[in-house]
Amino acid sequence: MKFPSELKYTETDEWVLVEGNIAIIGLTDFAQDQLSDLVYFESLVEVGDVIEVETQLGTVESVKSAGDVLAPVSGEVIEINTDLEDEPEIVNADPYVDGWMFKIKMANSSELDDLMSADEYMEQCEE
């Protein structure tokens, strides 16, 4: 299982990649493994929506379980990975690159300080 060190993590299993003032968000390898094969991805927000921390951005479903994607940071939704609507299994195959879900233009980058490092997140997963 991979926990790339350049990413930030949430307690609810999202990862964040920061590129300037843009946060790219997806579900972690651990989350996709727990959910097993995804059959559905739905965005609950639209490009242009302004969202708060923990706003539900999207939802995913596998055969036997379902999960939410929550916003790790506040800001404006600028892009949604619509490829996942047709091929949610990308998240299983490549959770950190092709499986990205949302791009958010951050309103307050200090919110990143509340997120976990790879080591901290790995520790949480082991519990």
Partner: peptide, 13 residues
């Protein structure tokens, strides 16, 4: 099929 939308999995959602 599509049971992941149902109450026994999604509960209050």
């Amino acid at each position: 099929t599509l049971t992941a939308r149902e109450q026994h999995i999604r509960r209050e959602k």
